[in-house]
Each structure stands twice: as C-alpha cells, then as structure tokens.
C-alpha cells in the first residue's frame, strides 16, 4: 500500500509518497497564489513520478489542508510534524519547526504522540519570513545564507519586528557594515527568539529542527548556541509535515483494513 502526504505551506507545498517503511518519492514546489491548484498539480506530478496506475490515497496538512477535494483526510500540521519528526528520528521528544509564516514547538511522548504544543502565528518575527525579508533587503538569495555568514561576526539587530528590522538592516548597510555580518546578526536574532520560544515548553532535551530553514547549517549552530542542547535535523526536514501526514494516513488505512 502506498500513501501520499501533502503539506500545503504558506511558502512551499511539499509532497511525499510513503510505502509503509520508506519515503520513496518527494517533491517541493513554491505555493502559488492559488494553493488549491498547487496541491492538485503536485498530486498529479507525484503520482506520475511513482509510476503507479492505481489511485494513491492522499492525506493533507498545512494551511491549505482542507482545499484538496480528493483528500482522504486532513490533519493539522502540529500532529503531522510530530509524527514526521518521530519517523525521521525515533528519539525525538521536542520538535521546533520554523515555517514560512509561523513557528511551532511540539512536545512528544516516547511513542511520538503529541502531548503539548505552542504556536506563534501572530507575528512574522521568529518565522522564516523574517529571514526571507532580510535576505531580500541584502539582495541575497536564501540559498546563499550559509556561505554568506561563514567566518563573520554578527552585528546586533535590536528590532524584534520584521518591518522595523528591515529599516535597521537598511541603515546598517548605509553605514557600510558587511552584509555577512548583518546576515549573521539577523540569523542570531531569530535563533535567540526561537530558543526562548522552545524553552517555554522544553526542559533541556535535544531538539529536532524542521522546516525550510533546517537546510541551513549556520542556523542549526546558532540554535545550539542559544539553546545549550544538541539540535538534530535531517536532510528531509523540510518534508516533515508531508511525511507525518503520510505516516499517519498509512496507520489509519492499515488499521481500517484489518
């Protein structure tokens, strides 16, 4: 049996196919102005990739989770991120996910069930959007982040608000401060904020870090510095929501077929 998991996020839409043991196919596409059609296109593309003739049941999560009419069921991103993180790293008890427009901390029990969570969805500071806006102001691509900040010294960014921080970055540039120092300052600021957020729930256990920003080594290092605990991530960390949806879907369907 194969299950498809689709995570419709604010910035990217992620999809995976799961066969009960392995994630066999993955796809990440930018979310368009029409998240519903982005999901439909992704579903088609993944289905093609799998080479299957039969329909693959789809479980959805993320902001657009209810939009796909052919879905079997939608599950919130909290539950899916928990299940996905536990699948990728069985020892996980705390997940930090920094998404495009929100961030969340999820606490899991030893079996990978969610026992508590916090969400920040009121403010762009502390989300991927913060770094995205700052990188745009610096005229740099998000993918260059690690190269840009390596062996730099962070400048202090004092504004917590994404709008004010942007003006601050502009004035730092005007003063001739090195963009690498500024970028590291931005990164340090979001990691410090995220660390406070995690500490509201977590009591010193290692963190599983997911979301698009988990691709960046420098963010992982900065998070470890602020948290004082090991931060684990995974090459598929950006897909954790979609993986979780597929894993939960697989469990549900297997149980119903028994």
């Amino acid at each position: 049996m194969k299950i498809m998991g689709i995570d419709s996020g604010s910035t990217t839409t992620k999809g995976v196919i799961f066969n009960g043991t392995h994630v066999t196919h993955t796809l990440i596409v930018p979310t368009s102005y029409n998240p519903k059609s982005t999901m439909e296109n992704l579903q088609l593309a993944l289905h093609k990739l799998s080479g299957d003739d039969e329909h693959i049941p789809v479980y959805t999560t993320g902001y657009g989770r209810d939009l796909l009419s052919s879905k079997k069921q939608s599950i919130t991103e909290i539950t899916c991120h928990g299940a996905g993180a536990a699948f990728l790293n069985a020892d996980t008890t705390t997940v930090l996910d920094i998404g495009g427009q929100d961030s969340k901390v999820i606490q899991l029990d030893v079996k990978g069930n969610v026992i508590d969570f916090l969400m920040n969805d009121k403010c762009a500071a502390g989300t991927g959007r913060f770094i995205e806006v700052m990188m745009r102001t610096l005229h740099k691509d998000l993918l260059e982040l690690d190269d840009l900040v390596t062996s730099h010294t962070p400048v202090k960014i004092s504004s917590m608000c994404a709008v004010f921080a942007e003006s601050e970055v502009i004035s730092l540039l005007a003063k001739g401060i090195d963009p690498g120092d500024i970028a590291l300052g931005v990164l340090d600021s979001i990691c410090e904020r995220s660390a406070h957020f995690v500490k509201r729930l977590n009591r010193d256990a290692p963190i599983f870090f997911s979301g698009g920003l988990a691709q960046s080594k420098s963010i992982k290092i900065s998070l470890e510095k602020h948290l004082g605990v090991p931060v684990h991530t995974h090459e598929k960390a950006q897909l954790v929501g979609a993986i979780g949806a597929a894993v939960i879907g697989y469990r549900k369907l297997s149980a119903s077929r028994l």
Binding site: T76, E77, T79, N113, D116, F117, M119, D121
Partner: peptide, 27 residues
C-alpha cells in the same frame, strides 16, 4: 492536556483558532 489561547473581539484569528483547536483535539 491543557492549552491556553489568547484572543480578542475580532474575527481575524478564526483560522488560527481552528488549527489550534483541531491540533488539540487530535492530541
């Protein structure tokens, strides 16, 4: 389980409330 939610008298946070409550109930 316990969850606190901060809200006001607007209807702007209904989407977020739905996600939080659904996640809480799933838990």
């Amino acid at each position: 389980p316990y969850m606190s939610v901060e809200t006001d008298y607007s209807t702007a946070d209904i989407g977020q409330l739905n996600t939080r409550m659904a996640a809480f109930v799933e838990m």
